[in-house]
């Protein structure tokens, strides 16, 4: 018996979501009285640090560099069977979402994607209705696949690093050919971002976004926007947050010139702290905010940037 955790390596490194999955899996393993085994695809370099989040073993396999869901899920299912795993834990990332269902079918397991807390007995919770409610799922059977929503728990590195061991598995051939991969380096993608600066129609036009970018830069934050802003092409589609865009749960969400429509709130209201800058005292967003600043964003945003610069310089 064991809990098998799939730790996703991004260009050979483990981001916070991988650490969270390991931490979650290790907590779960001690809850059910078994060991936590990390499995990762790649050459195992950098994987030793994952031991410190509570895993007792770290396994790697380097047979395939493919991110195709058929290949990755086959490798994980084989590792799970080798580990005699009762639980498979993974991150609720783009890759995680494309493989969780496949693994559940292969293992004939129950499936919960996007869990926001550790299981309690045979149930586990996750956010539903775009964060407007939390559902408790009852799990049956003896095998379970759970993917963990990003920023749901704070991983603590309290244990010792581990020594990665290579295991042999059969990687099926992929039927998907990657032609090109375009990623922006140096920017934390929105679903993983801990700090987000977002702006809406109150910006009047794309030419005014410099002040938002400046604010994001001092904070080291990722930029986001409301839907009409992306729809009119002021900002790229991948910045659109909300019920029909990216759902995020950063530690800090700063919204400037966004009214706070229900569909916008649905994708951001799980943020830990929300700051709203708006010139309309009736803007619904103030009701969902922790801190509000009433006034013209074109005055306030540069002042906030300056105050942050001063703070960072200290």
């Amino acid at each position: 018996m064991s809990v098998l955790i799939f730790a996703e390596a991004k260009k050979g490194e483990y981001k916070k979501n991988a650490q969270e999955a390991v931490y979650y899996g290790a907590k779960l393993a001690s809850q059910v009285g078994t060991e936590a085994i990390v499995f990762t695809i790649g050459d195992g370099s950098n994987a030793n640090e994952l031991g410190s989040f509570g895993a007792s073993k770290i396994w790697f396999n380097n047979n395939s560099a493919s991110t195709d869901s058929q290949v990755v899920s086959a490798l994980i299912a084989q590792a799970a069977s080798k580990a005699e795993a009762t639980h498979v834990i993974l991150s609720n990332t783009a890759l995680g979402k494309s493989i969780a269902g496949r693994i559940a079918v292969k293992m004939d397991a129950s499936l919960v994607s996007g869990a926001n807390a550790l299981p309690e007995g045979s149930s586990v919770t996750k956010g539903v209705f775009s964060g407007k409610a939390v559902a408790k799922y009852n799990l049956s059977g003896d095998k379970h696949v759970i993917s963990v929503m990003g920023n749901s728990l704070q991983p603590e590195a309290t244990g010792a690093a581990g020594i990665p061991e290579e295991i042999s598995l059969d990687a099926p051939a992929s039927r998907v050919t990657v032609v090109e991969s375009k990623t922006v380096d140096g920017v934390v993608p929105l679903p993983e971002a801990e700090l987000v600066v977002s702006a809406g129609r109150g910006m009047k036009g794309p030419e005014n976004w410099g002040i938002i970018e400046d604010l994001a830069k001092v904070l080291g934050a990722t930029t986001a926007c409301s839907r009409p802003v992306a729809d009119t092409g002021w900002r790229p589609h991948h910045e659109h947050v909300g019920q029909t865009g990216v759902a995020i749960r950063p530690n800090l969400y700063i919204a400037a010139g966004i009214s706070g429509a229900i569909q916008h709130l649905a994708g951001v209201n799980s943020s830990k702290t929300i700051v709203v800058i708006n010139k309309d005292p009736e803007a619904p967003f103030f009701k969902a905010a922790d801190y509000g600043v009433l006034g013209d964003l074109f005055d306030i945003v540069p002042k906030l940037t300056a105050a942050l610069e001063k703070f960072k310089a200290q």
Binding site: K132, A133, K136, L139, K287, Y291, G292, V293
Partner: peptide, 19 residues
């Protein structure tokens, strides 16, 4: 093997602090 047993609605935010 996984079905919803119950729901909860998260508590609303406390009063906003105006700065």
């Amino acid at each position: 093997k996984s079905t919803i047993g119950s729901y909860t609605v998260p508590q609303g935010k406390q009063e906003v602090k105006m700065i």
